[in-house]
Deep mutational scan, measured.
Amino acid sequence: TFELKGKVGKVVKIAEDHYLVESEGDKWIAYSDEKLSLGDRVMVVDVDGLKLKVKRIP
């Protein structure tokens, strides 16, 4: 299986209740415990079905 946990991506869209993150050339629906901005670099900390939980990284 394709393992996304630990992968790095970038926030490419902000929606009302989720983010769109591009990682490894694909776009994924993501959510975070912190507020993210367009262009933020993020790391995948968990995968919930087809949704990614991400956190901001420097």
Score class of each variant (00 low, 15 high):
18 H>N: 07
24 E>N: 03
19 Y>K: 01
34 E>C: 11
20 L>Q: 07
25 G>A: 04
50 L>R: 06
33 D>I: 10
50 L>A: 09
26 D>T: 08
27 K>S: 09
34 E>I: 05
17 D>G: 08
31 Y>D: 14
12 V>I: 11
12 V>A: 07
10 K>A: 11
24 E>M: 05
35 K>T: 10
18 H>Y: 07
32 S>G: 12
34 E>K: 05
32 S>V: 04
50 L>I: 09
4 L>C: 15
58 P>Q: 05
49 G>P: 04
46 D>V: 03
27 K>W: 07
25 G>E: 05
55 K>H: 12
15 A>K: 09
36 L>I: 06
19 Y>C: 13
51 K>V: 14
10 K>C: 13
1 T>D: 15
14 I>M: 12
50 L>G: 11
35 K>G: 07
53 K>Y: 12
51 K>G: 13
46 D>G: 03
34 E>H: 06
37 S>R: 09
58 P>V: 05
24 E>Y: 03
55 K>M: 14
16 E>M: 08
7 K>L: 11
53 K>N: 09
13 K>T: 10
55 K>L: 12
31 Y>A: 13
11 V>N: 00
51 K>I: 14
49 G>S: 06
4 L>Y: 04
40 D>A: 07
23 S>L: 15
37 S>N: 08
45 V>G: 03
3 E>Q: 01
21 V>P: 01
9 G>P: 01
58 P>E: 08
53 K>F: 13
14 I>C: 13
52 L>C: 05
38 L>C: 12
14 I>N: 08
16 E>D: 07
46 D>M: 03
32 S>Y: 02
10 K>P: 03
40 D>W: 05
47 V>E: 04
2 F>G: 15
58 P>L: 05
57 I>C: 14
35 K>A: 10
32 S>Q: 02
40 D>R: 02
46 D>T: 03
29 I>A: 12
22 E>N: 04
20 L>N: 06
26 D>A: 13
17 D>E: 09
38 L>A: 10
49 G>A: 06
29 I>P: 10
11 V>I: 07
6 G>D: 06
34 E>V: 05
7 K>A: 14
30 A>L: 01
17 D>P: 13
56 R>P: 12
36 L>P: 02
49 G>C: 10
49 G>M: 08
11 V>D: 00
39 G>S: 09
31 Y>S: 11
47 V>S: 03
26 D>L: 12
45 V>Y: 06
51 K>H: 13
57 I>H: 11
43 M>V: 14
47 V>P: 02
45 V>K: 03
47 V>W: 06
41 R>M: 12
11 V>L: 06
56 R>L: 14
58 P>I: 06
22 E>V: 07
27 K>A: 06
44 V>P: 01
50 L>C: 13
24 E>R: 01
37 S>P: 03
34 E>A: 06
36 L>T: 01
23 S>V: 15
53 K>C: 11
19 Y>Q: 02
52 L>P: 07
56 R>G: 11
2 F>Q: 15
49 G>Q: 06
11 V>E: 00
55 K>V: 14
54 V>A: 02
23 S>N: 04
32 S>I: 05
10 K>W: 10
54 V>T: 03
54 V>R: 00
33 D>K: 09
5 K>V: 15
11 V>C: 12
35 K>Q: 09
25 G>N: 05
4 L>N: 15
47 V>Y: 05
50 L>Q: 12
56 R>A: 10
28 W>H: 13
55 K>R: 06
38 L>R: 06
16 E>T: 09
31 Y>M: 14
37 S>I: 11
